[in-house]
Design a protein around this nucleic acid. Structure first.
Length: 594
RNA sequence: GCAUUCGUAGCUCAAUUGGAUAGAGCACCUGACUACGGAUCAGGAGGUUUGGGGUUCGAAUCCCUACGAGUGCACCA
């Protein structure tokens, strides 16, 4: 059993014996650095039940613990805070348990499955910075849930049909001259994005001209010839017109080829991909069902609605007067489809917070319809990414392209390595170097986007995102490389780098390191429960930073006492593996050398 | 206008969910290298947690209010 659990039970027993009362769940917090001890028990909440002053309770329980618990070695009381020190022996046992555990951080199987939907791109333009936050979040949350003991299914729903792709198709038809990704020397997604921009320009010019000739702006936007043609094209697509469908397939395939390259580079993938062209007609049967159940109602014009004012929401249209479906109708259908396909115990959507209202409505409708899975749906809503110059706006060309960004961070890592590596990578081949630079660049980028609480809006500062110092991905990667270097050297010296630590005493910073290691499974569980990769990022940084302090204050290989030396090697190994594990939960790889 | 999220050091973010003197990084200043990897470490300076009220042993966190910002309020997706 771990130390924390042992201490909690000892406190419960102490209260029972000393006060003849039982308290509920005992909460321990890490002791603040300026005080002695590693665990703190707050006694204020007990004053009423135990009818004693907080400090007195702390003193009484503390004395009992030192006398009766083998793991508690000392205590001090500050006001209502009981700070507990733990015996070195207990920490060394803990370290050995961790070192011997090949799957440390992997929590027991929960026997439940979770479906995580993320990425979900449109096929009319390449991925940008906002998509990266979405992809990294979805990927990391999937990994964390898996480590938390869930069976995870990663899904993506590609928005491959509709007005937006028709705009690119029309522009390509007009101005494309049969250009291909090969002939243009562009990735397919970028090529199609180019035509999307071209459409927008031509369309705006038309509208402007009409306005100049006296047409009201709103009317011009609707009746501009290009817009009319796009609408006509969408209708032809929906009717299955062969030529239109062929063009649509050709352009979408180019986009998928481009996306595939990006996904491969950033290390993200899916177990199942849905295409909206296959699912956009779903949901109508559910509308029929809702009408029959009286959950929906039909207006005179034949449109179908639901009244959600009781839930604090509005009246919402679920089917148009002409019988066609809207966004929410589709989502009702796809949610049902996903449930049918996988029967997951929970469905999660990683979607930006601009759609908070949409998901409130979606979940409310499914509850009204009495779907058994409706209680287990969760919208992982994340904040927008701003630039130092303000919001990203595709119209104003201030969008940061994902491929460009990954390339730039990789180049920045290469530049930095020239200055910092000082010959450590001399034996690397050119491809090994490139692989390392990409690992570091991506590590910097992923860590930068994941260290912030997902729910919060965040600012993207390009200079900070490629920084290698301080609270960054490469800092943590560096510590891993550093540990591996020490272990390699120890191997060269003929020292055993695995095995059991037999020391009886620990330095403060060693104790602190083992304590941090022991917290890892709990942090994984919390990150899973809150869908918060940021917890893992902060943990990895704290562990790496504490290791650097340990490394600076105490020598490993120059330690003359063989018992202490062995202890430090086991400790370093365990820290290295835990850093690697934590970074994997963020989708970040760590190097052996850098 | 209605709904909703948010406001913490110069900047970017934390704060174990109501606990101790609010912590990190960047930037700035000062120290430590013929090194177990200095892509590091140690120290300094930097705060009325947007303002004002309230709840209690205790508030950045909960409630009210003012101000400021984001997002949503389509028969688009």
């Amino acid at each position: 059993m771990d130390i924390q659990e042992t201490v909690k039970q000892a406190i419960q027993q102490a209260v029972t014996e000393l006060y003849q009362q039982s308290i509920g769940e005992v909460v321990l917090q890490p002791t603040k650095k300026e005080f002695d001890g590693l665990y703190t028990f707050v006694t204020f909440p007990l004053t009423k039940a135990l009818r004693q002053a907080p400090a007195q309770i702390g003193q009484t329980i503390g004395e009992w613990l030192v006398a009766n618990s083998p793991v508690v070695s000392a205590f001090n009381v500050v006001q209502g805070f009981l700070n507990l020190s733990i015996a070195d022996r207990a920490w060394i046992d803990t370290l050995n348990d961790i070192a011997a555990n090949d799957t440390f951080g992997q929590l027991p199987d929960k026997g439940q499955s979770v479906m995580v939907e993320f990425s979900s791109p449109n096929t009319n333009k390449p991925l940008h910075l906002g998509h990266l936050r979405n992809n990294f979040l979805g990927d990391s949350v999937s990994r964390i849930l898996k480590a938390s003991g869930y069976d995870v299914v990663k899904t993506c729903i590609v928005n491959d049909r509709g007005v937006h792709i028709c705009k690119s198709m029309l522009a390509y038809q007009r101005f494309g001259n049969d250009e291909t990704p090969e002939s243009a020397g562009m990735k397919g997604d970028h090529l199609i994005g180019k035509y999307y921009v071209l459409f927008d320009k031509a369309y705006k010019a038309e509208v402007e001209q009409m306005v100049a000739q006296g047409t009201p702006k709103e009317e011009a936007e609707k009746t501009a010839p290009l817009m009319q043609e796009v609408q006509a094209m969408l209708r032809r697509w929906e009717q299955g017109d062969a030529e239109t469908v062929a063009l649509w397939k050709k352009l979408n395939d180019w986009v998928y080829e481009g996306f595939a390259v990006t996904y491969k580079t950033i290390g993200v993938g899916f177990d199942k991909t849905y295409y909206e062209s296959n699912t956009y007609l779903l949901g109508k049967e559910i509308v029929e069902e809702g009408l029959a159940k009286g959950v929906f109602y039909r207006k005179d014009d034949n449109s179908v609605w639901i009244d959600l004012t009781e839930e604090g929401l509005d009246q919402k249209l679920v089917l148009r007067a002409d019988g066609t479906s809207v966004y929410i109708t589709q989502d009702l259908g796809t949610t049902e489809l996903k449930d049918h396909d996988f029967h997951a115990d929970r469905q999660i959507w990683v979607v930006g917070n601009e759609q908070d209202y949409h998901f409130n409505v979606l979940f409310a409708i499914l509850r009204r319809l009495g779907r058994s899975y409706a209680q287990n749906l969760y919208h992982l809503s994340y904040g927008m990414v701003d630039l130092p110059t303000g919001k990203m706006k595709s119209r104003e060309g201030t969008v940061v392209d994902a491929d460009d960004l990954v390339r730039e961070t990789t180049e920045a890592a290469a530049t930095a390595a020239d200055e910092a590596a000082k010959g450590k990578m001399d034996e690397f081949s050119e491809t090994e170097k490139q692989a390392l630079f990409q690992m570091l660049g991506l590590g910097a980028l992923k860590y930068y986007l994941l260290k912030v609480d997902p729910q919060k809006r965040m600012q993207f500062n390009p200079a900070e995102s490629v920084d290698l110092h301080g609270n960054t991905g490469p800092y943590i990667q560096y510590v891993h490389a550093r540990i591996q270097s020490v272990l390699r050297k120890a191997g060269d010296m003929g020292l055993a780098t695995t095995g059991t630590a037999t020391a009886t005493e620990l330095d403060d910073v060693e104790q602190q390191l083992v304590f941090l290691l022991s917290q890892y499974p709990q942090r994984v569980a919390e990150a899973g429960a809150d869908y918060a990769p940021s917890y893992i990022g902060q943990y990895a940084y704290e562990l790496a930073r504490t290791f650097n302090q340990f490394y600076d204050r105490l020598s490993i290989l120059k330690e003359i006492d063989p018992v202490r030396l062995q202890n430090r090697l086991v400790l370093a190994g365990a820290v290295g593996r835990t850093i690697k594990s934590a970074m994997e939960l963020l989708g970040i790889n760590v190097p052996e050398k850098m």
